[in-house]
Design a binder for these strands. Structure first.
Length: 291
DNA sequence: CACTTGACCTGTCCGC
DNA sequence: TGCGGACAGGTCAAGT
């Protein structure tokens, strides 16, 4: 579920909602979701104060004043939902996908000293949340290899071309999904950016004209920014820190639009399978580049 | 090494 | 209605 725009939306919400709060207790029911020792939890989490919320790629980092951090990945179905003491237990915002919390999918509950709570829910249990020394985060294998942030200014068209060059024999969609090439793109925004650029997802990188790759760079930045502006994409599970859905999919041109007419040419959007993932394309507008 | 495929889980939807 | 199978937005490990 959550790709860069969704995690960024959650991050901005939590930044407003939990920075400065003190953790009173934590409750977790599934070892894989929160694989820390009780000793570490007691020593570095309980009674700690939240100093900062950050995002890198699709990973959300909550820094504590103990020089430890809660590092979380929402994977496919994870949610981080905040409830103030007034809303807790008494329902939810009008457009929320979740009701009373904790619910069946709640894996971790954090109680703050002011009575508010943060819930980590994850239906499919792929996600995780772990307590780590803040300065060790950068040593995690994922952070060692992860590529540039597409919304930072060092992500130029030249930078993208250079990173794509290492993977010139792969299908372009597989490369966009590879977090070591570029951080934060997932299935939704790969499909959208390739459609916007007129590139067939099965094209090998080496066969796509340079001019199209330069367009692709701009379209990646545009689609991610547009999605952040609409609070991300809610397909099935995604909600932000206050339980709200995102509205980007109302602007999507191909994702989940199979059988509907392409807005450019009126041909039906079709769904195929690329790199093991459901992939949405317009076969007329997206050229399969082969020299 | 570059690249692709299967595994991790639960829930839902679709066809018989 | 019931049941089996395919599929779902991400990442690793293990395979070719």
């Amino acid at each position: 579920m959550p790709e860069l725009p969704e995690v960024e939306t959650v991050k901005r919400g939590l930044e407003r909602l939990i920075v400065g709060k003190t953790i009173k207790s934590v409750d977790y029911d599934w070892a894989k979701s929160f694989p820390n020792s009780n000793n570490d939890v007691q020593q570095f989490l309980i009674d700690s104060k939240i100093t900062k919320v950050r995002r890198r790629a699709k990973v959300l980092i909550i820094d504590l004043d103990t020089n430890y951090s809660l590092v979380t990945h929402l994977k496919m179905t994870g949610q981080l939902v905040f409830r103030g003491d007034k809303s807790f237990g008494s329902g939810h915002p009008n457009d929320s996908l979740v009701g009373k919390l904790p619910d069946k999918s709640t894996r971790v509950t954090i109680d703050f000293t002011d009575g508010s709570k943060l819930f980590f829910n994850d239906q499919r249990k792929f996600g995780w949340c772990r307590l780590l020394p803040t300065d060790e985060i950068k040593n995690l294998p994922f952070f060692q290899k992860v590529g540039p942030e597409p919304l930072e200014k060092e992500f130029t068209a030249q930078a993208l071309l250079k990173r794509l060059d290492r993977r010139k024999n792969s299908m372009i969609k597989a490369v966009l999904l590879d977090q070591s090439v570029l951080a934060g793109i997932g299935n939704i925004y790969a499909d959208e950016a390739l459609f916007m650029s007129g590139i067939h997802p099965e094209s090998r990188v080496a066969n796509v004209p340079k001019s199209k790759l330069i367009n692709l760079h701009g379209n990646i930045v545009d689609v991610l920014q547009t999605s952040i502006n609409s609070g991300g994409s809610t397909d099935k599970n995604y909600i932000d820190a206050e339980g709200r859905k995102g509205s980007f999919l109302t602007f999507a041109k191909v994702f989940r639009r199979e059988g509907l007419p392409c807005e450019n040419c009126t041909n039906d959007i079709v769904k195929i399978r690329v790199a093991g993932r459901g992939t949405h394309i317009c076969v007329k507008c997206q050229v399969y580049n082969e020299h």
